[in-house]
Design a protein around this nucleic acid. Structure first.
Lengths: 212, 212
DNA sequence: ATTAACTTGCACAATCATGTGCAAGTTATT
DNA sequence: AATAACTTGCACATGATTGTGCAAGTTAAT
């Protein structure tokens, strides 16, 4: 008897799954309530085939959040620096590469069925921001006119604003990289020249590679 | 023959209409796709009665935008000052009072059927911000490391961030008033002490009345 | 008190998205 | 070339929401 040999999954199926996730990221970033039909169309597939890859709408969306939080976590691993302010700048610039994922997550964190799940997925990131802000505040290297918890939230918003700016106008990778840091430092209380000096005097913050 | 005398509208009907608009502001601010049933319930009325006041969902939402833009316009009338930076601070603090209206509008401007209409309604406000930023940039009183159009958008975001902060934590009227200005100035390039001095040295920016 | 204004509940048709079954295709793998 | 893997189109049931008609009730104005 022939052992029930399971054939390995087709490569195009894997591609299609990825295409669906990409399309979902794009589509849901502008409308978290968009139909699966819209997502499938954006991926160049039929609505029916979505169910070949995901059990249902919820599973697709949850996967987006899961992937996103994994990427964010990876981006955060490389962030380590004694100066909490540098760390905050690094966090911002690290997130810059995960714009697509973060925008969906930011949306899902506010509305939709996955609110709690998404908030949970973002919790480590936010905790890291808060910790850095707190540490910098204790060290007296940032503003002291705003309570740390509130300031941490405003810093998050400042970073998000730059991410959204990237969807409103053409923002080169280099410009975006610097703008996130500059806007973050501004929120932390730095004057604009002060922020520029801060960044330029620290090689960790200056974009290394001139690649792409 | 008796002339077809039309009786004046009942007072409770007027109240109910207002209650519906209030409820809609609250409900739609968290979910622009919420059902009319949810809105009616929040207003303490039945879904059916909504149609006694508004032709349909669209009309209700459009009315929200119309009212909002009228309030914003009124708030902006009192803003006039030779110094564009002061003007920007005043705009921010003026908008602070219209949080509820602005939050719905900010949402509608991004999604939903009224996107274009809402963007149009917000255009004068945004134009005023851009003009002030541009003027200040020419005068050299603000940062010069970010193109004015982009900076104007970031200023809008900075103000919005404070409006949202008011929904996340308890923000007294006085604190909110100052925070909008401080965050705006920070985005314009001011250091935090610089921003504080700027505000405190200008009586127009210091909250006049201690009235609630 | 009378009457018009208003609210409500119910029923109804219409629309739209979801999720599933199935048969007929196409395509990558072996 | 054979076959499993995958996609597609269609049909169908389900559920949510919208907008409307109408009859019965309630409430404010006169």
């Amino acid at each position: 008897m022939s052992t029930t040999t399971t054939r390995s999954p087709r490569r195009d199926a894997v591609d299609n799954r990825a295409a669906l996730l990409d399309a979902a990221r794009v589509v849901f970033a502008t409308d978290p309530d968009a139909s699966l039909d819209a997502v499938a169309a954006a991926a160049g597939l039929s609505r029916r085939s979505v169910y070949g890859h995901f059990a249902n709408r919820d599973e697709l969306q949850r996967e987006l959040v899961t992937i996103g939080s994994a990427r964010v976590a990876t981006a955060l691993e490389s962030v380590a620096h004694p100066d909490p302010v540098v760390r905050l700048a690094l966090i911002g610039s690290g997130l810059w590469r995960e714009v697509a994922d973060l925008r969906v997550m930011a949306l899902f964190a506010v509305r939709g069925a996955h609110k709690q799940y998404t908030i949970g997925a973002l919790a480590p990131l936010r905790a890291q921001v808060l910790a850095a802000v707190r540490e910098a505040a204790s060290a007296g290297t940032i503003r002291s006119d705003i309570p740390v918890e509130r300031l941490a939230r405003l810093v998050e918003d400042a970073a998000l604003a730059v991410l959204e700016e990237s969807t409103r106008s053409v923002l080169s990778a280099a410009d975006g990289h610097r703008l996130v840091m500059v806007n973050t430092l501004g929120t932390l209380g730095f004057g604009w020249r002060e922020a520029a000096d801060f960044i330029d005097s620290r090689p960790e913050l200056v974009r290394r590679e001139a690649t792409s």
